[in-house]
Amino acid sequence: MKLSPAGFAVTLGLVGFCILALTTPGFISSDGARAILLSAAVVGTLAVGQAIVMISGNLFSLSLASSAAASGMAFMASLRLGIEVAAAVAIAAGVLLNAAQGAAVGLWRANPIIVTIAAAGLIEGAAISLSHGKVLYAPRAEHGQDFLTSVVGGIPVAVIIFLAVTICAQLYMRRTRTGREIYLLGDSREGARAGGLAEAALTVKAFSVAGALAGVAGILLATETQSAQVSLVGTNTYDAIAAALIGGNAVFGGRGSPVRAAIGAVAIAAITDLALVRGYSTGLQIAVKGTLVVLAVVIVRLADSSAKTA
């Protein structure tokens, strides 16, 4: 198998990482692995959503984490109605908030970065206003909420949910008509148009699915901290995009996959935990993340241009 310069760099990186990991005490233990997966669950779910937006050729969404926080708050606020209802509310909120953005981008070709930045501000502002700035806590008599924080077969439920949504998203993108058409749309918008594909509808669907995933992420966030407020957004906006890019998704659309984004999230979580265990500062972690993003983008671009003949 030929090894392109890109492949070589990646292999070198992986080898370096493994050496670092193996020589760090406390990293390779089931506890360590569990911790990694747990922190990857939320970012990973969001990253899968970002991947779908990227694949559709619409760059990325800067409001996905904000809508996740909003979904988390909606989840908390509706828990007294039962966990199923609360989950449905959270996911529905995510879908609606993002479908609207998808409509602006798909129907009117508005710039996705601008629309999602604005939406982030709107969503966060609205969330604070509606909650009167207070933190939402789970009601005393929680209904089945315990389940979400429990552990099944040694794996936290949150992680199981993350892996499950990743698989579902992957199947959706590869095996359904909509998913495959989203790939085509991202590869060539004009080609999709001339071929009779429904560009606007596909964009709205892509954003809606990402929104649903944000809803799930919001639920995971809320149950993790047993509370919900806007600050849940934290660094998730950039972390999710970084995860998707590092996993190998291309920002120019038409290729990549949800699984790659999930792998990117796990990789980031592993690096973060490794850095934590080794005592590296937050700043270094973030800087390393950024460097990896740039590297990944460059590698993906080089690999793409060598595959495409003139």
Partner: peptide
Amino acid sequence: EGLFLSRSISENLTATRLGALSRIGVV
């Protein structure tokens, strides 16, 4: 305005008839 260059040959050949090749949305 035609081919989807990063996709495979079989994907390109079937790009516009996915509806006929799927049932309940699943290909």
